[in-house]
């Protein structure tokens, strides 16, 4: 990665209210090129809304959002259903992306193992296949930032691990930053550079090894979850000081 410090998106002091209900308050977040950030938090914590603010799909009620001029986003929405009265094959769905070419779409679908389904109606494929199709569509835009809203929902456990594997490999291949929202704490926390715990505001954030010991994290998810996760995150070749900085062995 040529410029590690490049900031793709910076949001400052962002607040969002819908129908007089506070969805987000005082959220600050910087997304650097090439990093993987996981946003976790309970239901109704505003995770999807935060993604939409970052993507410019929703205007925040206050605060600022700054996007890099060369930002290219690949977005995988949480929900997408194609009306059954619309005849649309998987291949055609992918080609709806303005960045798509036939060759590009062939390469990406082969990599994701969905090239056999290209001629199937999009309404007919399984949940796991559909999530991979959505990921392929996001990748067709040649993103330097992939935004994934619960990429593994509706996917069984083994396929989940497979999907997260693909996603973390994407960074190596494309050098793109990844911002994802997830409920699957185990799978997410291990592959990620930075974990952000959101519950309307950012409760705590840090690298995965230290975050599970943060009092706010334990408060949010309970100590059983935190202990469980701590085991997962200790397979690293480095240690962390009290602030969470990396100390290489």
């Amino acid at each position: 990665m040529p410029d590690d410090k490049r900031i793709l998106v910076e949001i400052k002091n962002v607040g969002l209210q819908l129908n007089q209900r506070v969805i987000l308050e005082d959220v600050d977040l910087k997304i650097h090129s090439g990093e993987i950030i996981s946003i976790i938090g309970p239901n109704g914590a505003g995770k999807s809304m935060l993604l939409k603010v970052i993507l410019g799909l929703i205007q925040p009620s206050k605060g600022s959002v700054t996007r890099d001029a060369e930002l290219r986003v690949g977005y995988m929405p949480q929900k997408l259903s194609v009306e059954s009265l619309m005849p649309l094959t998987v291949a055609r769905f992918l080609m709806l992306s303005p960045g798509a070419t036939l060759e590009k779409s062939r390469t990406i679908t082969a990599e994701l193992g969905i090239d056999n389904y290209l001629n199937s109606p999009i309404q007919a494929i399984s949940g796991g296949e559909f999530q991979r199709v959505l990921l392929a569509r996001a990748l067709l835009n040649s993103p330097n930032l992939l935004v994934l809203d619960e990429p593994a929902q509706g996917v069984d456990i083994t396929a989940q691990a497979y999907l997260y594997n693909i996603i973390t490999n994407m960074r190596e291949k494309l050098g793109c930053a990844i911002l994802m929202v997830s409920h699957d704490l185990h799978l997410v926390v291990a592959g990620t550079d930075r974990v952000v715990c959101l519950n309307k505001h950012i409760c705590c954030s840090g690298n995965p090894a230290t975050i599970t010991r943060h009092p706010e994290f334990i408060h949010l998810f309970g100590s059983a979850v935190a202990d469980n996760l701590a085991i997962y995150t200790h397979k690293h070749d480095h240690r962390h000081d009290l602030e969470g900085n990396i100390i290489h062995d």
């Binding site: 410019g56 799909l57 977005y75 709806l96 835009n141 935004v147």
Partner: peptide
């Protein structure tokens, strides 16, 4: 046509792709 289809399938996704 291409924009109409993209926006019909999912408007948020289309918006992110610059439609």
């Amino acid at each position: 046509w291409r924009w109409l289809l993209a926006a019909t399938v999912d408007s948020d996704l289309a918006r992110c792709e610059g439609v």
